[in-house]
Amino acid sequence: MSAHTARRRWRRPLLIAAVAASIAVPSVAVATDAPTSEPGARTAVQVLDDTYYKDAIGKTGPELKAALHTIISEQTKLSYDQVWDALRATDEDPNNSSNVILLYTGRSQSKTANGGDPDDWNREHVWAKSHGDFGTSTGPGTDVHHLRPTDVSVNSTRGSKDFDNGGEELGEAPGNFTDDDSFEPRDAVKGDVARMILYMAVRYDGEDGFADLEPNDEVSNGSAPNIGRLSVLKEWSAGDPPDDFEKRRNQVIFDDIQHNRNPFIDHPEWVGEIWK
């Protein structure tokens, strides 16, 4: 394990540009706490609390986690081949419907430029599939809440490393850092990464023949069903709250693909309620 001698203190930038400011989403509006123009109207999140999350409201700690697990486990499952088309919808560039936005580089790239060449994009398992040895099996291996389009070579650099602050900056992807045992994504997606990891920990708890996935405060977790560093992931979630792109992505998955939600996008405060 490295000593992280190059560790940096992450500071949220003064301005993080929203990737998507206004996108029409099928079925219902993107969940937001912004007030509506009609007096007495309820926000989309409040509506979800009355419907989708009603069995979780008022709970904390393990009870909240258990309730959310039951809620989000009701989902449509995809094959690994179906993930390609799913990502073309979930990660569409709001300014160019022919492109997707790549997670670590932020680059807008053609939806059809996917494959195995170094500058293609491929399917990144944010919860590394070797951490719990679930591979690309239908279930955690195909859950698009944690699968994102990424540059092939940057994906290779991240590999199966845990997440933490520190390391050397990637020349191909400025703002991302890595060392022997960890990877630090660019500031604009730190919260996204954290909330994807924590979604996986709630969704997959040892049922259906898959491992019980849990974050911990370690790095170099290897093939254990754990990813760290939890304390850093909590900081990232608090410092980079959900933006319009992340909210839209959650809604598209709910409306059109898996029909379940990442609760930490709708309720970021639940991170601290579960992992104190």
Rank of each mutant, 00 (worst) to 15 (best):
H69S: 01
I71L: 06
I71K: 10
I71V: 07
I71C: 12
I72Y: 03
E74T: 13
E74M: 04
T76I: 08
K77Q: 14
K77T: 08
L78A: 07
L78D: 05
S79C: 09
S79R: 10
D81P: 00
Q82N: 09
Q82H: 04
V83M: 04
V83A: 08
W84H: 14
D85V: 07
A86R: 13
L87D: 09
R88C: 13
A89P: 00
T90K: 03
T90F: 04
D91N: 08
D91P: 02
E92T: 14
D93T: 01
P94E: 12
P94Y: 11
P94C: 11
N95K: 03
N96R: 06
S97A: 15
V100W: 09
V100C: 10
I101T: 15
I101H: 05
I101V: 14
I101A: 06
L102H: 02
L103Q: 13
Y104R: 10
T105H: 05
G106S: 11
Q109L: 14
Q109N: 07
Q109H: 04
S110T: 02
T112I: 04
A113T: 02
D117N: 09
P118D: 13
D119S: 10
D119F: 12
W121N: 02
N122K: 03
R123I: 15
R123Y: 12
E124A: 00
H125F: 04
H125L: 04
W127C: 08
K129E: 15
K129M: 11
S130P: 04
S130M: 15
S130V: 14
S130Y: 05
H131F: 01
H131W: 01
H131Y: 02
F134R: 12
G135A: 09
G135Y: 08
S137F: 05
S137A: 10
T138W: 03
T138R: 13
G141N: 14
T142M: 14
D143S: 09
D143I: 06
D143R: 06
D143Q: 09
V144G: 04
V144Q: 05
H145R: 13
H146C: 11
L147I: 15
R148M: 09
R148K: 12
R148E: 12
P149H: 01
P149K: 01
P149S: 02
V152I: 02
V152G: 01
V152N: 05
V152R: 11
V152L: 02
S156Y: 06
R158H: 08
G159H: 08
S160R: 11
S160M: 06
K161A: 07
F163A: 10
F163P: 03
D164N: 10
D164R: 06
N165H: 13
N165I: 11
G166L: 01
G166Q: 03
G166T: 01
G166I: 03
E168V: 15
L170A: 00
L170T: 01
L170W: 00
L170V: 02
A173R: 00
P174L: 09
P174M: 05
P174K: 08
G175H: 07
N176S: 14
N176P: 02
F177C: 01
F177A: 01
F177T: 00
D180L: 13
D181Y: 10
D181G: 08
F183C: 13
E184A: 12
R186F: 00
R186H: 00
R186I: 03
D187W: 10
D187V: 11
